[in-house]
Structures are given as structure tokens and as C-alpha cells.
Amino acid sequence: MTLYDIQVKSPRGEQIQLSNYEGKVMLIVNTASKCGFAPQFKGLQRLHETYAKQGLAVLGFPSNQFANQEPLEGDSIAEHCQINHGVTFPLYAKIDVKGSNIHPLYQHLTKSAPGFLGLKSIKWNFTKFLVDRNGKVVKRFSPTVTPEKIESQIQKLLQQK
């Protein structure tokens, strides 16, 4: 199975094919609106605004698996992030990013790009995965790595056709 074979859900429950992003560079992030790392939404939004026309897709996947920091549901997550952080990039339906009910997307991402010491499990909100235009997971970034620190790597991938 490739990344493009995976389906995700919109906040309203519609099935979305990740193949819609084929040919784009993707930055995939597990988010939480009440997390201490939530100020990173502004940096993610800036990347979206700066590079979307060049082929970058920033994709947010809310998860409530870390200290219940995503208590909101459905459209209210996107509304909160729009009002408080100016987010216009897609935020999908809340998913599990670890554990027995891990979403197939995060099964694929964590298998393709293990974390520190080869551990696959997501440790906290705002773990980021950078995916090239061919759907290959290039790198995993810890929550402490800000969007600004990833920008040069995004630029390099965008230059590759």
C-alpha cells in the first residue's frame, strides 16, 4: 500500500483520497488545539500561504491522545484554529495516531519514518512528517522542531519535479 491508497475523513465525515495530493510535497502534522505547541499553527499557516502555489500541502490531523488536548469535535476544531491561529490549511477528522486504533495513515508514516532510537510510536502533538512529490516519507520531525526550521527542506523538495 502507498500513501496515495489511504483514505481520510473530512470533519463532516466525507471520505477523502490522499491521491488528491499526488505530485505535491506534503507536511503532515498531528495537531491539538489546546496543546502548548499550538502556536506552531501560525508557522504552519505561513508555510501554507508561502508555498501552496508551488505545490506544498500542509495537512493537519487532530488527535486527542495526548493529555486530552483536543477536546473539540468536527468543524469546531477548524473554527477554533481559524479564529485563534488564522488556519486555512485542511484540518481533517480527529484520528488516533498511536495505539490499537491507529489510523492507516499514521501506520504508514510511523513505519516509513521511525522516530528517535527507531521508535515508531508518536510521542506528542505536532510531530511532523515531510513527504516528497512521489509520496515517499522523507523525514520525521519532533514536536519541538518548529515549522520555520523545516522550511529549507520544504524548499528543496519543491524544487524537485
Rank of each mutant, 00 (worst) to 15 (best):
Val131Phe: 12
Thr88Ile: 14
Ser121Thr: 06
Gln40Thr: 01
Leu27Gly: 00
Glu79Asp: 12
Gly86Tyr: 09
Ile28Arg: 00
Leu72Gly: 03
Ser112Leu: 02
Leu119Ile: 07
Lys42Asp: 09
Gln40Trp: 06
Gly23Glu: 07
Asn30Met: 03
Gly135Met: 02
Asp96Trp: 14
Leu72Cys: 04
Arg133Ile: 03
Ser19Thr: 06
Leu18Cys: 05
Leu109Cys: 02
Thr146Gly: 10
His80Asn: 08
Leu59Ser: 08
Ile83Lys: 13
Val145Tyr: 04
Leu3Arg: 00
Val87Ala: 01
Gly86Ser: 07
Gln54Phe: 14
Val8Ile: 11
Thr31Cys: 06
His108Leu: 13
Leu157Ser: 04
Leu27Pro: 00
Ala67Ser: 15
Tyr92Arg: 03
Ile28Asn: 00
Val8Ala: 08
Ile28Val: 10
Glu79Arg: 13
Ile83Glu: 14
Leu117Glu: 05
Ala78Thr: 04
Gly74Cys: 04
Asn125Leu: 07
Lys98Val: 06
Asn68Gln: 15
Asn101His: 15
Lys156Cys: 02
Asp75Lys: 12
Leu44Arg: 02
Trp124Thr: 02
Glu49Gln: 14
Phe41Thr: 00
Gly115His: 10
Pro90Ala: 05
Ala32Cys: 01
Gln54Gly: 10
Tyr92Ser: 03
Lys98Glu: 09
Gly43Val: 02
Lys53Met: 13
Lys53Trp: 14
His108Thr: 01
Gly115Cys: 05
Phe66Arg: 10
Lys34Leu: 06
His103Thr: 00
Val145Met: 07
Pro62Glu: 04
Gly99Val: 09
Leu44Trp: 01
Pro114Met: 08
Pro71His: 09
Asn20Tyr: 12
Asn20Ser: 14
Gln159Gly: 12
Asn125Ser: 10
Thr146Gln: 11
Gln69Cys: 08
Val138Pro: 00
Ala52Tyr: 15
Ile16Gly: 06
Ser19Glu: 14
Leu3Ser: 07
Ile16Cys: 08
Pro143Leu: 14
Leu130His: 10
Lys128Arg: 02
Gln54Asp: 15
Asp96Thr: 10
Gln82Ile: 00
Ala113Asn: 03
Phe66Gly: 01
Leu130Asn: 03
Gly13Val: 08
Pro62Lys: 01
Gln17Glu: 15
Phe66Tyr: 10
Leu47Cys: 04
Asp96Tyr: 12
Gly60Pro: 03
Ile95Gln: 02
Lys120His: 04
Gln54Ala: 13
Lys161Pro: 07
Phe126Ala: 01
Phe41Asp: 00
Gln17Cys: 10
Gln69Ile: 04
Lys156Ser: 13
Val145Arg: 06
